[in-house]
């Protein structure tokens, strides 16, 4: 199996000197679906921001699809890693849905025809065709989440990284989103507190606490370990309790 993400000895602390990540070593392989879980402030979001080069640390190194994280490679890396932020209001900043979904492809300097095709395809993939001229402010939370995903799908990324994809969704829309994510056969990394959803979506789970990786293993096994989960401010999903 091909390694798509390789993180070695990554450390990072925020400008206020609070340590956010400490000695992170993580390999992710092509086609894997990996969940990252942990308490609030465990460093999950900081970690995924590194994968896209939004945050860059001097300590440790990151390789994405055999590319080192350097100024020269960063554009290419960003087009290969689709990062969906937690809050759709941050992800969708354009006056219309079309402009938001076409933002990535336009930055990739694709031809106008290709941009339109990618945009239409991405919206179709998330079952939101026909919303092109709507303003994102008037959409429901579930619709916003879908469009947010479309904004990165239009770049045709090899790795999809999602921060809290199921937060703020009602059960029906949450279920629809899970079905949607199941359809993708790409490398997916999901950060979430929604452990039940992770159980369905991710084969592998990385457990973080205070900036460090505590455990990395099969989702089902990891989440069944009651002591491990509770020591790290989590709890076993109901469906695994008996």
């Amino acid at each position: 199996m091909k390694k798509v993400i390789e993180i070695n000895d990554l450390c990072y602390s925020y400008p206020d000197e609070k340590i956010a990540l400490e000695n992170i070593n993580l390999d992710i392989f092509e086609g894997e679906s990996v969940g990252i879980v942990g308490a609030n402030g465990a460093g999950k979001t900081t970690l995924i921001l590194h994968i896209n080069g939004i945050i860059r640390s001097n300590n440790g190194n990151i390789k994405v699809i055999d590319m080192e994280m350097t100024d020269k490679n960063i554009r290419k890396i960003r087009s290969k890693v689709g990062l969906v932020f937690q809050n759709p209001e941050d992800q969708l900043f354009s006056p219309t849905v079309f402009e938001d979904v076409s933002f990535g492809p336009l930055n990739m300097k694709l031809s106008p025809d290709e941009v339109i095709k990618r945009t239409t395809d991405a919206l179709e993939m998330v079952e939101m065709s026909g919303f092109e001229n709507r303003s994102s402010h008037h959409l429901s939370e579930g619709e916003k989440k879908r469009i947010s995903i479309a904004t990165v799908l239009s770049m045709n990324p090899e790795i999809l990284v999602l921060d809290e994809p199921t937060s703020n969704l009602d059960p029906k829309h949450r279920r629809e989103l899970i079905h949607l994510l199941k359809k993708f056969n790409k490398t997916i990394i999901i950060v979430s507190h929604d452990l039940e959803a992770m159980l369905e979506l991710c084969d592998r789970t990385v457990l973080m606490n205070k900036g460090e990786i505590v455990k990395d293993g099969k989702t089902r096994e990891l989440m069944s370990d009651r002591k491990l989960m509770e020591d790290n401010y989590l709890e076993c999903p109901l469906s695994l309790k008996n």
Binding site: F85, F103, N107, M108
Partner: peptide
């Protein structure tokens, strides 16, 4: 955050 999400899409 908006700027981050723009950068993530190649801005």
């Amino acid at each position: 955050r908006v700027y981050q999400s723009m950068s993530a899409r190649g801005f």
